[in-house]
């Protein structure tokens, strides 16, 4: 009893910085945004209470909202999935024993995450230039006519996926760390049973990576929901709204269309979607266990 109370006190003391930060930098802004989401507010004149109107409009009237949601989901289901496959594959390669220059390779994969956003955006416009860009030039060498990338409604999102994979150094590191956690004995036992590489990957590595995949999946999903700088600079949502992503549309509503209330409602819907998807991720990963 005494210990329990002391532990409660100590626990709360240790997390007290978080409690303070949570109250001031999260709860307060969060609830102001909840309030704003129920108002018509342009940030200048007093907010005017309109009830659930913003939510109704988003969900039942605004067809752009669903385009935006679709674009974002595409990035999560297609983009994040591809990124996950590529990053796990690279991490497995990097985790191979007895390879020289491994620290060099690790740095190489991490470099892209260090480039400042503005430079990054301009760099990729340049690289994915349909006519003379590096990617299409290389594709041309092997006889493939490269697509229009950011110039094409069909290929703009895949262009952003390429960028996303390129900037996935964080994920690789996390997988790499998780791979290091897998006990060697598991592999040894599998070798004795005569398992080949693929079998080891599917029966040992991937199941053991589950927590890391879950973690990367959730943080990656949130990063996609929140990212807007690249699309803002490169395509500003075009062509044909193909790259109008959630945060970009939210941002435009808040600061360019003077609809802070509408933007706040979008944020709350986003919060609910993100929480639901996180729960689904957790469920799926449990079932996999």
């Amino acid at each position: 009893m005494n210990t329990e109370r002391r532990n409660l006190r100590n626990g709360l003391l240790f997390i007290s910085p978080w409690i303070i930060g949570f109250l001031f930098f999260t709860i307060y802004p969060l609830f102001s945004s909840l309030y704003y989401s129920l108002t018509k507010y342009n940030l200048i004149t007093e907010p005017e209470f309109v009830g659930l109107q913003n939510y109704r409009e988003l969900l039942f009237v605004d067809d752009v909202f669903f385009t935006v949601l679709g674009n974002t989901m595409y990035m999560i289901f297609v983009g994040l999935t591809l990124t996950t496959i590529v990053t796990i594959f690279i991490a497995i390669l990097l985790n191979t024993k007895d390879i020289k220059g491994m620290s060099f390779f690790r740095v190489v994969f991490f470099i892209p995450t260090l480039v400042p956003f503005v430079v990054l955006a301009i760099l990729w416009i340049w690289i994915l230039q349909p006519d003379s860009g590096v990617v299409n030039s290389v594709l041309g060498l092997i006889g493939i006519e490269g697509p229009g990338w950011f110039a094409s409604p069909k290929w703009a999102k895949p262009g952003f996926i390429l960028m996303m994979i390129w900037m996935s150094g964080n994920m690789i590191l996390i997988y790499l760390a998780a791979l290091g956690d897998i006990p060697k004995t598991l592999y040894e036992a599998a070798s004795i049973d005569g398992a080949n590489v693929l079998q080891k990957v599917f029966h040992i590595t991937l199941p053991m990576l589950r927590p890391a995949i879950l973690f990367n999946g959730i943080t990656g999903m949130i990063a996609i929901f929140q990212s807007f700088a690249e699309a803002f600079i490169i395509t500003n949502g075009g062509p044909d709204n193909a790259t109008l992503f959630y945060s970009l549309y939210l941002y435009k509503n808040a600061f360019q269309y003077f609809n802070m209330g509408y933007a706040s409602a979008m944020a709350w819907i986003l919060l609910i979607i993100a929480l639901t998807m996180t729960l689904i991720f957790f469920r799926l990963s449990k079932r996999w266990e």
């Binding site: 416009i125 230039q129 349909p130 003379s132 860009g133 229009g148 950011f150 094409s152």
Partner: peptide, 18 residues
């Protein structure tokens, strides 16, 4: 239109020889 856009998009816009 896709072809046109690919054909005409030059990195650097008006401030490049492109």
């Amino acid at each position: 239109p896709e072809k046109i856009k690919s054909f005409t998009s030059g990195f650097g816009g008006a401030f490049s020889p492109d």
